[in-house]
Design a binder for these strands. Structure first.
Lengths: 161, 161
DNA sequence: AAAGATTGAGTTCTCAATCTTC
DNA sequence: GAAGATTGAGAACTCAATCTTT
């Protein structure tokens, strides 16, 4: 057990600013989406993937992989969305363990109506405040962290530099 | 109503990478904290503020302001933490509407035991992957977005550039 | 009436257990 | 046994309503 290396003042400022920003941004985007369209961020994310998929349908596990959600979270979410008529489930004949999730007409309408305001919010709150370089930097930063997540999650025994 | 300006390919890549990273990072940090110390991120955040406060106590509204949480979220959280013995509530004699939240010995022990592993995780997953410049950039980016959140939340009628 | 705080109901997320088909 | 998926219980968050003190 070695001595903890605490965060420096600069590291701490950056990390706390990030945490703070992240929670407020997520809450605000969710709040706006909810009040302008009745959808949550989770609903929106599911609908986006489905609307981009061929014939508006996807296997459950594909959706889960794309969103990187836990199986049970996805299953509960889909049950609720199905109850509201946004998606339906379809049996998969090739692999009878599995199921398709299908966008309904009502689901497609919902995402089409919600998207413009949501994109505008993302621009207003984030993108319009950044230079092109900063947008590139945001992608790089995110990718770096994702790589580290993959590395440490799949192989917990190999400490990264 | 004007035409929606959709995200460009670069903007979309950056934004989706951010969303993806953000949700996975938060989930992973929470998972590690939970399994190594039995604390959630929310517990940890509350305990950090209290442990930094004078005499380990803070008025509820101060804690809420610092964390930028909704009142009811804080109240429910404190009720649960009190039930587990991490904090207690104390009446405030100067302003009898209010209450103090006080760190218990057990709460202080919990945060002291949890902190080293949590800091290590933040380093491993994030900070160690960034250059000093990128850390500065992360702070700047976060501050920019926070400013925009404040601007649009308090004054919804004034569109930012 | 406003500020500080709590409560209850409804929704969502996580964890572990389960079920079916491969 | 593993993969795909669901279920139920418990914890956490949000919204609106409420209560007390200023």
């Amino acid at each position: 057990v070695r001595q903890t290396r605490w965060l420096t003042a600069r590291e701490q400022r950056a990390w706390r600013a990030y945490l703070h920003m992240q929670s407020r941004l997520a809450a605000e985007l969710n709040r706006r989406l909810q009040s302008s369209s009745g959808l949550s961020t989770a609903d929106y994310d599911v609908l986006v993937r489905l609307s981009e998929a061929n014939e508006g349908r996807l296997r459950s596990f594909e959706l889960g992989r794309d969103l990187q959600w836990e199986q049970s979270r996805l299953s509960h979410q889909l049950t609720r969305m199905q109850r509201r008529g946004l998606v339906t489930r379809q049996e998969c004949t090739e692999d009878r363990r599995g199921a398709f999730v299908v966008l309904t007409d009502s689901g497609r309408t919902a995402i089409e109506q919600a998207a413009p305001a949501h994109v505008a919010a993302v621009r207003t709150l984030v993108l319009n405040g950044l230079t092109a370089d900063q947008i590139t930097e945001l992608e790089r930063f995110s990718t770096t962290v994702l790589t580290r997540l993959d590395a440490t999650v799949t192989d917990a025994g190999c400490p990264l530099p």
